[in-house]
């Protein structure tokens, strides 16, 4: 290629995280690699225990005891955040250029501080604004996340806000310092559907207007499709498939991704039965030697006893499977498509 590739804003290279628990060494992440380009929205999708939240914590530097990063690297605009100098730099990045929205907005807000105080504190610390400036900017931010009468609302306490409103406040706090990257860890799981739709709209809006990069962490493929350009599907501590949202949803390569898409209910689907991926993910205490999905995979074969390498797909994504693009659940779908009623 003639032109140089732009530097990704965030790059994670072969990250391994282990948790030294009393029951043994749990391999939380087993070689996770991905990158996020400026202005790009990446979804990390997976079941609970797949390592998606651990990945976010690792990037945010929130891995504490009993966990530790064993190997791999996290690069911010090409520079490692794990070297001693990098760690210092990382500390100044976090909360400013790199911010995060959590699942539960109630526990992330101090119940004894007004909403305004939260905003003013962040703006004064990171943006070096004076108090009146910070106050004015805070009101603007609240208005931007769709909170009416922002000046009156700033004097209120978190408990006076509904769940959806609090998540809006969290988003306002997260974008207050004009970050380059926002990590949203299940930002809508605790919210009602109608509120979820509003919060997702809001994120999409900021992504466009601010050129923000977003890493959206979720277990629900439904909310991925509407918001993200690229998708990485995690299973048992590693990424099994990655690619553009369009290709992943159109023609998923990995049997797990295929199953995940089919088991997500669709409104226009008149079938009486959903496709389900039977079984449960393997324990990361003693992860299987071969493909981690083997035990639940309908098309698993002998060669799955050895771990499949990552390969590039024709559509430009990547997949870790011996038999990619093999329709794994087709027959199941056909038999259940019968209208019983």
């Amino acid at each position: 290629m003639a032109y140089a590739q732009p530097t990704p804003i965030l790059e994670v290279r072969d990250l391994h995280v282990e948790f030294d628990t009393m029951s043994g060494l749990v391999q939380g992440l087993r070689g996770v690699s991905f990158s996020v380009m400026p202005g790009e929205t990446l979804a990390l999708v997976g079941e609970s225990g797949s390592g998606k939240s651990v990945t976010a914590q690792a990037v945010m530097g929130l891995i504490g005891l009993p966990g530790s990063i064993v190997s791999g690297d996290i690069l911010w605009k090409g520079q490692s955040l794990l070297t001693p100098e990098g760690q210092k730099k990382a500390a100044s990045l976090r909360g400013k250029s790199l911010s995060m929205v959590f699942q539960d907005p109630m526990t992330s807000l101090n119940p004894l501080m007004t909403i305004g105080a939260h905003l003013v504190e962040v703006l004064r610390r990171h943006m070096k604004l004076s108090k009146p400036q910070a106050f004015a900017r805070g009101a603007e931010l609240l208005e931007a996340v769709g909170i009416t009468e922002p000046r009156r609302r700033m004097a209120q306490y978190p408990h006076e806000f509904s769940g959806g409103m609090r998540q809006r406040v969290m988003i306002a706090l997260a974008i207050a310092c004009e970050p380059d990257l926002l990590i949203a860890d299940e930002p809508t799981t605790a919210l009602d559907v109608t509120i979820q739709a509003q919060v997702l709209d809001l994120l999409a809006d900021f992504q466009k207007s601010m050129g923000l990069s977003i890493v959206l962490i979720t277990h629900d493929l439904g909310i991925v499709a509407g918001l993200c350009e690229r998708v990485a599907v995690m299973y048992a501590g590693s990424i099994v498939e990655a690619g553009s949202a369009a290709t992943v949803f159109e023609q998923a390569e990995h049997p797990y991704t295929q199953g995940l898409i089919r088991s997500t209910p669709r409104l226009d689907d008149r079938r009486d039965r959903l496709v389900s991926i039977e079984g449960a993910p393997p324990s990361l205490l003693h992860p299987p030697k071969g493909c981690a999905f083997q035990s639940r995979c309908p098309v698993a074969s002998r060669q799955c006893d050895t771990k499949p390498a990552r390969q590039v797909t024709p559509a430009g994504g990547s997949v870790s499977c011996w038999t990619p693009s093999l329709p794994a659940w087709a027959d199941v779908a056909k038999t259940t498509e019968v209208h019983a009623r």
Partner: peptide, 10 residues
Amino acid sequence: VPEPDPSHRR
């Protein structure tokens, strides 16, 4: 209800 379909983009 979010649809698992990228053509329903927000």
